[in-house]
């Protein structure tokens, strides 16, 4: 299959969130969709201890040429897909640049230190303001809240992938995503996941 044209090569996408949010699943599915379009995808992940309530990042490098470092260099993210708003900020502080875009799930997950009262989680407006300063374009979407209505918070991942597809930055077609759903999850779960995907698309708008 002929490679789709990319706006940057490599295109650097960071999917970020908190351990247990299903970040790894999202990056794998997205990677497979892009691979099926003839692109080279390199994904850097960590898991194990780092998943236990810690910050979890996946770095996706999308290229027409070959494999790249599984770690994106500082200041070089094109898009941040954040399952948690504080994690969006953390990533942008290190990997952001004036052209960076971000899609942010608006539901916070408090760090245990904040739950315990040793630190405080920034107020929503304050956090939104900081994210605005560090991005060229930004979408804040209530992915978890919508996912809960679909039956489980884990669908937030799929909503986020739909939102990413709607930005048009990467060739994530509905057909290719559906094929990946079928491959990865089996037929039974395709419908609800596609519904989540469509919700994400609608949240960003065509």
């Amino acid at each position: 299959m002929a490679a789709a044209k990319l706006m940057h090569d490599p295109y650097n996408l960071i999917i970020t969130g908190v351990g247990g949010q299903g970040n790894v699943l999202a990056s794998r599915m997205l990677g497979n969709v892009l691979t099926s379009q003839g692109l080279w995808v390199t994904i850097g992940e960590t898991f194990g201890a780092s998943q236990r309530g810690g910050s979890v990042m996946s770095h996706l490098r999308v290229s027409e040429q070959g494999s790249w470092s599984p770690q994106i260099p500082a200041g070089k993210a094109h898009m941040v897909l954040a399952l948690e708003p504080l994690e969006a900020l953390r990533v942008l502080v290190k990997y952001g640049n004036p052209r960076a875009k971000a899609i942010v799930n608006s539901r916070p997950i408090l760090p245990v230190a904040a739950i315990a009262g040793r630190t405080s989680y920034p107020a929503t407006e304050e956090l939104e303001g900081m994210l605005a300063q560090l991005t060229a374009q930004r979408w804040s979407i209530p992915a978890t809240d919508r996912a809960m209505k679909l039956g489980a918070s884990i669908f937030a991942n799929i909503i986020m992938i739909g939102a990413l597809a709607a930005t048009g930055d990467l060739p994530v077609s509905r057909e290719a995503f559906e094929a990946e759903l079928r491959r990865a999850l089996g037929h039974a779960k395709v419908a609800v996941n596609l519904e989540a995907y469509d919700l994400g698309v609608a949240m960003v708008g065509q």
């Binding site: 247990g20 900081m130 560090l134």
Partner: peptide, 21 residues
């Protein structure tokens, strides 16, 4: 941009301590 990012960093990028699930 770099300066701005550094200024914002300490305010909001507190560590997420690893924790039992």
């Amino acid at each position: 941009y770099d300066r701005l990012a550094q200024e914002l960093a300490p305010q909001a990028t507190q560590d997420r301590e690893l924790a039992f699930c």
